[in-house]
Nucleic acid binder design. Structure first.
Lengths: 209, 209, 209, 209
DNA sequence: GATGAATGAGATTTCATTCAT
DNA sequence: CATGAATGAAATCTCATTCAT
């Protein structure tokens, strides 16, 4: 319950200063993403992550002193990706039509999915400390809410926040399409785009609260 | 000399034959729901389920010969609940306005949630054999699609199926509200109702494919 | 280590007096032979023996209060078979040539094998209390020694006993042939007959000690 | 990104890479021989083998990832002993009289016995995979047959093979003598030597098939 | 710093045996 | 007496984590 440091984990003093160390950490994180994605948090083993990253188990623990700390680091990195992505989207939103914004949301999730659908596994399952989880959720929500405030002029901050929650949940469905047959997948995706558009349009209609 | 089937003695995984046994099974399933919900499939332990149901570990294994078989049984029971609930809803749908149907969906998920939000954990995670999972998903989809075909006159079966997928995904969000603060929870719920109404309305507008 | 009673096990007072009880016991013993033979002593389970004999596990334990007691009873019954067989052979030995006696030994083991090769499993493995085991060995040895004394006139009792030990060991090989291919099996059997004949002949040659 | 084979870290069942590891493996194998010999394959427990070798259970499983793998390793090592012993004997057989060869057989088994009479338990019982078992049996048979071909000039290969089977079976009796009283043991041993001599002599007499 | 052997708590599962019904 | 549910010790095996080399 007591989370120590929110940094990617700096074992005895600091992050790896040497080039070699940074490569090692990168390899571990990559392997971590792979294994967590394939097996889920519980079934993934530190030994396999070590092996797959070409690292001795002892070395792995030097950089990430616990399984949870590795998951946290991975999640944090993912959260940064998302945060940056949303910030970028927020800048472009002024130049877009409402429908384009809707599509942008779907495309954004699609990109995330192909990059790291593993995060869902970590967040949904036990993985990631409670702190980390909440932080990640907050990043998502406020990022999306920001965009909504720009895309839907006149919307109240509260409404934007609530819409963000609902929108995020809906967008999660995009990820689930990965398991469908291609034909079905395409149809679901199109339908989701439509729903998001409709949602944004209706919000514009009623505006405020 | 070797009789295969009709022997007495219930070696493993058989159904209880005495009253007491049925009570025990009920207790185990209840504890199973609890523990799976709290910890997720992997982190849940048979030992804890046994303890929490006041059952010796051996007795637990008499009725459910493996962790997976318990998860399957739980999922199956839940699937029945859902199936019956959807069937019931399908009968009433003729007498309802479109908006009432939207609300009914949300309410339905709300009821399920309070009863057993654990199923999502089992379905999403490792738990439940693949067969069981697919079967459950299919039950959900066709049940919801049936209702949609009645609620949205003129909709094509294919469109109904795709809408069902998207709608289910959206409704899953209702369950997530359980972790929110009450005030936020209420707002999210209202927003979701609105979204579902909007979705149904838009479907009626364009109708067919 | 403390063996209680050397009888087939008389639970609360006496052996089953009713016809039904005797049938039940017979069924259990038959199933016991089967399962012990198929799985070996350790891997055999009382539950399976009960099931295969159409007996409730509780009833099985009424007649045989432990797994070991069942194994003992089976072994005892087998020992009786052997004892009687040897005794019968001893009576006929006077009328046979030495070569016929050798063949009779091999044939005798052959018959036992097809009847219950399970005994070896029980004796070799953990099964059967030490007492039971020693008793069985003694029955074999003195039975065979008796025959030798009749078949080889002038042999000393001590020599007969030692020969019995060696002969029994050699004859055990007959049982192992069960796993060979038919062609090989026949050859081995013939070779064994030859060896036993040679052995008896050589004993006659040197006679006494 | 996924490197399959040449990664460091020895997950399971790997050979020790440090000196200490090799000592540990030796200790485990020694304890394995002891416990398997005393209890038989099924009744032997990994926990006891670990304890008796002063090894933590986890360490035991590091080197031998399953009970069967330990039994296999033990059997393989024993098979090597036997193979080498037989090969050595084969080289010396040219310089020996037939009677000396017979004695050599008995002595050979005697040596094996004092070293590891456990193998019989493993081979006869469940232990060791079927492959391993058959391989071991074949090693024995062809090794003995080789010697016979040299010791009994003019014998046909087929006859040598069959004789080997019978001879091995007979020699197994030598091991059983371990349980006898010393006096009896000596007599049985002498008798067996005599039988083996007689057997070889008779084979020389009839020669070929 | 890197390495990998060592550790041991803990998870799943089995089965002989008992005893209330 | 028959029945079968209940019991729990014990077995096999896993894996996060530590620490001597």
């Amino acid at each position: 319950m007591i989370s120590r440091t929110p940094v990617p984990d700096a074992p005895r003093g600091s992050e790896p200063k040497r080039e070699k160390g940074r490569l090692r950490v990168a390899a571990i994180m990559e392997a971590g993403v792979q294994v967590f994605t394939e097996k889920g948090y519980d079934a993934a083993t530190m030994t396999e992550i070590a092996a797959r990253s070409g690292t001795a188990i002892g070395s792995l623990y030097r950089f990430f002193p616990s399984k949870e700390s590795l998951a946290d680091a991975l999640l944090l990195r993912y959260a940064l990706h998302v945060k940056n992505g949303l910030a970028e989207m927020a800048q472009q939103v002024a130049d877009l039509t409402r429908e384009s914004v809707a599509d942008a949301f779907v495309d954004f999730v699609l990109v995330l999915q192909s990059q790291r659908s593993f995060a869902i596994a970590l967040v949904d399952a036990r993985g990631g400390s409670v702190d980390e989880r909440l932080r990640f959720r907050e990043v998502m929500r406020s990022g999306v809410a920001d965009i909504l405030r720009k895309a839907v002029p006149g919307i109240s901050p509260a409404k934007a926040k609530v819409m963000a929650v609902v929108l995020i949940q809906t967008l999660k469905g995009v990820i689930s399409t990965a398991n469908e047959e291609p034909a079905m997948q395409a149809m679901i995706l199109a339908e989701m785009r439509e729903l998001v558009r409709t949602y944004l349009a209706s919000a514009s209609g009623q505006k405020g609260k």
